[in-house]
């Protein structure tokens, strides 16, 4: 872990101004930013841990908690919201037994709601493992979760 972080930091020439890209790469590598990872970034880059923690908690894109194998983001922007994203959120919560921002105990699924994905015409939108699914409804969500391996 320490070595991998050190390698990523070296890849950016140890330049402090690349803190965010470095954190993105570390998160990509380990799935989330663990406490040890943040400490290692701080030590390797010479940026105080208080500042690294500040950046990590500021951006929604960084997670300090482990994420599940499958990551589901549901758009709750205005357009998606009025087209029933709330109902879909309820369906996901019922099926996966996890609330917004949580990860299932078996580390299979994590679910979060996001502000706007910028594709309002396709609303309501779900991003599952980086893949966009537009014009979602409860039935299609159930099908999607089954496809991701959720046994019902």
């Amino acid at each position: 872990m320490e070595e991998k972080v050190s390698e990523i930091v070296q890849g950016y020439g140890g330049d402090k101004s690349y803190l965010v890209p470095i954190m993105q790469d570390v998160q990509k590598e380990f799935g989330y930013l663990s406490r040890d990872a943040l400490t290692a970034i701080s030590a390797n880059l010479g940026v105080p841990i208080s500042r690294v923690y500040e950046v990590a908690t500021f951006y929604k894109a960084f997670s300090l908690k482990p994420k599940g194998r499958h990551h589901i983001s549901l758009c709750m922007g205005t357009a998606c919201h009025v087209r029933g994203a709330e109902l879909i959120s309820g369906n996901i919560t019922d099926m996966l037994k996890i609330k917004d921002g949580e990860t299932s105990a078996d580390m299979e699924y994590s679910f979060e709601t996001v502000g706007c994905l910028g594709a309002c015409a396709l609303g309501p939108i779900i991003v599952a493992d980086g893949e966009y699914h537009g014009e979602m409804n409860i039935a299609k969500t159930t099908k999607l979760l089954k496809k991701l391996g959720k046994k019902v």
Binding site: R35, L38, P48, I49, S50, R51, V52, Y53, E54, T57, F58
Partner: peptide
């Protein structure tokens, strides 16, 4: 640099890293 801000919006607050004693 023992303290910094954490989170943003209404949750933003000044604290030690991880809200633990530094």
């Amino acid at each position: 640099s023992a303290i910094g801000f954490s989170f943003r919006g209404p949750e933003k607050n000044v604290c030690t890293p991880f809200h633990e004693s530094s």
